[in-house]
Computed example of a mutant assay.
Amino acid sequence: MSRIIGGPDGQNKPEEPIAIVAPYIDTIEASSPRHFHSELLSLVKPNSGSMLVQPIKNRDNPAIVCRRLLKINQPSRHCMELLQRYRAHDPGLSLYRLHIAFDVISTSPSVTREDVIELFANHFHLRYRRGSDDVFDFESTRYSVQVSNRKTRPYRNTALYSGRDSKITGECDAIHFEIRLERKRSVLASGIEDPSDALNIDPAQFFKRHVSIKDHRAILAKIIDRRVKKTIDGYPNVEPAFIERRVKGLHRRLLMSHVSSFAKYYPKQFERLKKLDCIGFEGSLNWASADVECYDNVGKLHCLLPPARKIKRLRLG
């Protein structure tokens, strides 16, 4: 597949993208020191895939609620606008978590589905990750960072799976990739402070800011060959075929097929690899839920209403 990832004559960009992806907001979480108004929740619910309100409790004293958390899956564009307007009522509202999803909607005729899955699974490297973090597979989903063995939640993570329906096209077994900003600081670092900022995300720039694509297989094969030869020279009484199996087996157990694992053990070689530009992006965000304007539920919370249109006066005569 090396000829597929790169372009002709060693270029980092092929003549046509390997895959075209449709970006959309999969999950967003907002936090507030106040209770979320019931009128806001009545508008958010029909404008999202699902919604959950959860308290954030004090670690030392669980009886104390520090903030409230509003989790929204697959928000509509109108839902994001409602959150922005709600800030006039609750200035303490802030974005706590943001997941941007990329569903593959088309692939190049020169590649197979398995080629695209291999590209997404083994050659996408999450930037700014700790060197000690490990790639983790759980229930047919691959994560860039294993959360269970960490003392704190990572600032960023990615998730990849290919066995569920697309929330955008409805395609069965769609290839689904997510960039997950898991903490408020990482959301702010991406230039997203208000809900309205999420509406203006440039999908290509957002992806390149957090993920780099590199093909490490050729240099990894050279490293393994040198390790095998050096080990055989050091143990002349051991069968060479046995040594070769042990060395290659060790690299498989370390998941060296993934570029992030390669970066962990061979950082200098990783830095020398060129970044590849082989994914195409739709120019703007898609929305997994339709806009539902149900202003009858607004009640007295008038900040949720759209701004009134000003009638321009005409001069007569």
Rank of each mutant, 00 (worst) to 15 (best):
R59S: 10
L70C: 08
L82I: 04
N47P: 07
L52G: 03
P91V: 02
S42K: 15
I117T: 00
F120C: 06
L40E: 03
S42L: 13
L126Y: 04
I117C: 05
S106F: 07
K57M: 14
C79M: 06
L98C: 09
R130Q: 11
L70S: 02
R77S: 04
I117V: 13
R85D: 03
L69G: 06
R67V: 08
E39A: 12
P46D: 05
V44K: 04
T112R: 06
A121N: 15
L82R: 00
R68H: 15
L93M: 14
Q74V: 08
D26P: 10
D26H: 14
I105F: 01
V44T: 06
S32G: 09
R59I: 13
C79E: 01
I28W: 12
L40P: 03
T27G: 00
P46F: 08
C66R: 13
A30P: 02
E29K: 09
P75E: 10
P33K: 14
S76N: 09
N47S: 11
L82T: 08
Q84P: 02
R127K: 15
D90V: 00
S108I: 04
L126N: 00
A101I: 13
A101G: 01
R127S: 02
K57I: 13
I117L: 15
Q84R: 05
V44H: 01
Y86G: 07
E29M: 09
R97V: 01
M80Y: 03
R59W: 05
A88L: 13
A22P: 09
T27I: 10
R87D: 00
R113Y: 13
G49I: 12
R59Y: 05
P62N: 13
L82H: 10
S31W: 11
L93E: 04
S31L: 09
R130I: 00
Y96E: 14
S106M: 02
H125E: 09
I105Y: 03
L83D: 01
S50R: 15
E118M: 01
T112G: 14
Y86K: 03
N61C: 04
R34W: 09
L83W: 04
P33G: 10
A30Y: 14
L119E: 07
I56C: 04
R85F: 04
P55W: 02
H37V: 01
G49E: 05
D90L: 06
P62T: 11
Q54A: 12
R130E: 09
L95G: 04
V116S: 03
R97C: 08
